[in-house]
């Protein structure tokens, strides 16, 4: 397997304010992700999966270990790793189009005309062309997340990091955006790490699901979802429900066991 992203022996410890007690968040942890792969991070809440993703994004620094992207050692955030947050990160002082165009603002690889073209392209892809001139406080939460996704894609990152991007949305909007993301993924083939605690969301979207233990995070199990349910079946809503539910129960059982461990430990 091609090792596009390579996480090697990464650890992370948080210290309490007085510096006396430490909380290990991530144990020595190694992981590889192939180019174009959609990887879902699952695990009990507070297990350190978001921390790991933020370390990969350069927004937090690991204590030890290394992360490489296409062979380059990574340190600090840059345009190669785009991030979509759970909270709405679109800018209220810009309209929808200018928000998306902001993604191209710091690109030096394309001309001004191309920036306009790319902006319109992604605005259309997330279905917001009709809302081009709307300020973001006039549009719904789901639309704001679409703005954030389009803005990130317009910046042309090598990998897309999504931190529970649909977590704050209602069920219908969430499902709509999940299918939209699958459509985008079909054309974009963007390497994506997606953190969620929603098992069904993970199975629906994943090429591979990585299940983490309770804190400190280590990989408990990796599941190649494509081997169980082909991606086109999921995309067309024709997934074998028997397989879908048995996979869901299998994953839930692992997470429950991990969760029980934390409860007993405290």
């Amino acid at each position: 397997m091609d090792k596009f992203i390579k996480v090697t022996d990464v650890t992370k410890t948080y210290w309490s304010e007085d510096g006396k007690t430490e909380t290990k968040v991530v144990l020595p942890l190694s992981l590889t992700i192939a180019e174009g792969e959609m990887v879902m991070f699952l695990g009990p809440s507070g297990c350190g999966k978001t921390t790991l993703m933020r370390i990969i994004g350069g927004l937090e620094k690991q204590d030890q270990g290394s992360i490489t992207l296409a062979g380059d050692l990574l340190a600090g955030p840059d345009r190669r790793r785009g991030m979509v947050f759970q909270s709405y990160s679109s800018f209220p002082w810009l309209c929808v189009r200018d928000n998306i165009k902001f993604g191209t603002r710091y690109r030096k690889d394309i001309s001004a005309a191309e920036k306009e073209e790319i902006t319109d392209h992604y605005m259309g892809m997330v279905g917001l062309s009709a809302y081009s001139d709307f300020y973001t406080n006039r549009i719904s939460g789901g639309m704001r997340q679409r703005v954030a996704i389009a803005r990130t894609l317009a910046s042309s990152p090598d990998i897309l990091l999504m931190d529970e991007p649909f977590g704050a949305l209602d069920a219908q909007t969430r499902e709509h955006l999940q299918f939209q993301l699958m459509d985008i993924n079909k054309t974009e083939k963007k390497t994506t790490i997606f953190v969620t605690h929603d098992v069904e969301e993970a199975i629906l979207l994943a090429d591979r699901v990585v299940i983490f233990s309770a804190r400190p995070a280590r990989v408990v199990k990796e599941i190649d979802v494509n081997a169980v349910i082909p991606v086109q079946d999921r995309r067309n809503n024709k997934a074998d429900m028997q397989k879908f539910f048995s996979l869901r129960n299998e994953i839930l059982e692992i997470i429950r066991a991990e969760y029980r461990q934390t409860m007993e430990a405290t």
Partner: peptide, 27 residues
């Protein structure tokens, strides 16, 4: 100013000065 705005700026490739001028001040 929400941390996510600033972190978005970093991951979109903005420098510290650009984040200050284009994100923190308008926000």
């Amino acid at each position: 100013v929400p941390t996510e705005y600033i972190e978005s700026g970093h991951t979109l490739g903005a420098s510290n000065g650009q984040i200050m001028r284009h994100i923190i001040i308008p926000a």
